[in-house]
């Protein structure tokens, strides 16, 4: 029993001495623990806040690692961001400003010269302190990574590959486009363009008359507001997490075409149902029932 108590005391003392740093960032810039920036945003600032607990026996370094390793002090091509000195117990939170351009310059590159995707890891590192059961502190000889979660600053100057031409189907006053998603894409855009005659008698694409942007999980686009019987050109554009836009795909031509649903077929066969609230049998009572149902359904949606 006494041994267990001593063991628990020692374990607790060690835990008390652990240094931890927690990083937080706005979900607008942090996706899957990655901050991805395009070439256009290379010099833009991205802010990450940190908070820490535990004792320090050496300087705590905040830095961007060029090789992904955080178990050392910053050196050479790394970019130092901030330090907390030993004995500084007052500084327990702070803000780090990340710029891809600064991280590249630390390694001798620039936003323009770096043409491939590069990843920098945000590190918080310091030697660990252990405290034994009677209060003696021991400082480790090597640096440890104490920051969580692991956050990467990714400089992505490369746009995704151009997608292949979308498959297009004519709908009533609309077109349906099915796209194939290039790798590295997070969003797809489909644009519908008008066709215009050229002076040479050929036909080219004119203005964008409709467009829609969807996450890559949904590869079928419905583009409404088009005129039946008029031919349109449809093209797809891929966008990656950094916001880089691919070249547009080749266009596919499509023509919206009028169609009849069941209601049209029923009326065409001489059906007498005129629909609408006024046709809710029972007149005012029917309308009231429909309205109540609608209100109830709306309120249910709002709650959830």
């Amino acid at each position: 029993m006494r041994l267990i108590l001593v063991g628990l005391l020692l374990f607790a003392s060690t835990a008390l001495g652990q240094q931890t740093v927690t990083f937080t960032a706005s979900p607008n810039i942090l996706q899957n623990n990655r901050i991805v920036v395009s070439q256009a945003d290379c010099t833009a600032e991205r802010t990450v806040t940190w908070s820490r607990t535990g004792l320090l026996c050496e300087t705590l370094y905040f830095w961007l690692s060029s090789d992904g390793a955080c178990t050392r002090a910053p050196a050479g091509a790394d970019l130092s961001l901030q330090q907390v000195a030993v004995g500084d117990t007052a500084t327990t939170t702070g803000t780090l400003t990340l710029r891809a351009s600064a991280a590249l310059e630390a390694g001798g590159d620039t936003c323009e010269s770096q043409t491939a995707t590069t990843t920098f890891r945000l590190c918080a590192s310091t030697p660990r302190v252990t405290v034994d059961g009677i209060g003696n502190q021991t400082c480790a000889d090597t640096f440890s990574s104490v920051g969580t979660p692991t956050i990467d600053l990714v400089y992505d100057p490369e746009p995704p590959a151009a997608p292949s031409a979308p498959g297009v189907t004519g709908l009533d006053g609309a077109l349906s486009a099915t796209v194939t998603v290039p790798s590295d894409s997070t969003t797809m855009v489909v644009e519908v363009l008008s066709l215009v005659g050229g002076e040479d008698g050929g036909v080219g694409t004119g203005e964008v008359v409709n467009s829609k942007e969807q996450a890559v999980s949904n590869t079928v686009f419905r583009l409404d507001g088009l005129e039946n019987g008029v031919e349109y050109a449809v093209r797809a554009i891929a966008i990656d997490a950094a916001g880089n836009r691919s070249e547009p795909s080749a266009v596919t031509l499509g023509t919206p075409i009028a169609s009849e649903g069941f209601y049209g077929g029923y009326l065409g066969a001489g059906g007498a149902e005129t629909g609408g609230c006024a046709a809710a049998g029972g007149g005012i009572t029917g309308c009231a029932v429909l309205a109540s149902l609608g209100i109830w359904l709306s309120s249910r949606r709002k709650r959830s």
Binding site: R222, D224, Y263, C277
Partner: peptide
């Protein structure tokens, strides 16, 4: 029909 309630000649397909 398609993405919404069908409307034919101004008549809405519901009641």
């Amino acid at each position: 029909k398609g993405a919404g309630t069908e409307v034919v000649d101004g008549n809405r397909g519901s009641g």
